[in-house]
Design a protein around this nucleic acid. Structure first.
Lengths: 111, 111
DNA sequence: TGCGATACTACGTCTGCCGTAGTACGTTGG
DNA sequence: CCAACGTACTACGGCAGACGTAGTATCGCA
């Protein structure tokens, strides 16, 4: 089970990366994350909704209603061109972060 | 330059890992981090002091004064046995987190 | 008709990192 | 001698992200 603080700040990257492939809606996104992490990471509903709203407010996601599906109409989220750019940027940032933490965590002394 | 939010939650791991080798004091720790990250990550003083105090309050670090050095007496920090355990735990957590983010970030679809 | 899955919102709280600022001591050097 | 600079540390308020809890609402199905 992975704690939220460890993931903190990377949820945007995860969501954008999932939505890069195809549009999805909040509930499905949360399932996708749970499934693909084999249950290791379960996003809280509040966290998820907050995150998609944040991304949308930054114009990284667009949303549209889908009435055709069964049940309540769903809000689908779709990545925007800006979202793609951000995704690239966040991937790069992640690689830097990963390299940095790896460096210290593994205690190498090569500068 | 790596933003603090990307590192957030991993500072404890970084500090413990550095102190695993040998005791150090706040100022030196900050220099170590700056140097070893080639200036990519510069910890703020407030962040650093908050972090070491937090670790100490959790009994992961011990401190002692060193009067022999020139200048103001320094507070040296030394990792405790509990700190070693935490370090192992945090390393493991980091590996999980890394695997998870990598998985999503790189858009693999192998569950 | 009511239960379970789906779909979402509201609100207050906690924690970590930041910005800014100030205090204080020592060595060095003009 | 005293001023500047590096070292060492504290205080305080702010902000954002994630959380816990809880409530609302619709639909399918038995």
């Amino acid at each position: 089970m992975i704690g939220a603080d460890a993931i903190r700040g990377h949820i945007d990257l995860i969501l954008l990366a999932i939505l890069e492939t195809r549009p999805s809606y909040a509930y499905e996104l949360s399932k996708t994350i749970t499934d693909r992490s084999r249950g290791e990471y379960v996003v809280k509903q509040t966290t998820l909704y907050t995150a998609v709203k944040r991304l949308q407010s930054h114009r990284l996601l667009d949303s549209y209603e889908d009435v055709s599906s069964s049940g309540k109409p769903r809000t689908y989220y779709k990545i925007t061109p800006d979202g793609h750019d951000q995704l690239d940027a966040k991937r790069a940032e992640w690689r830097s972060t990963r390299a940095l933490v790896d460096h210290f965590a593994e205690g190498q002394d090569t500068a």
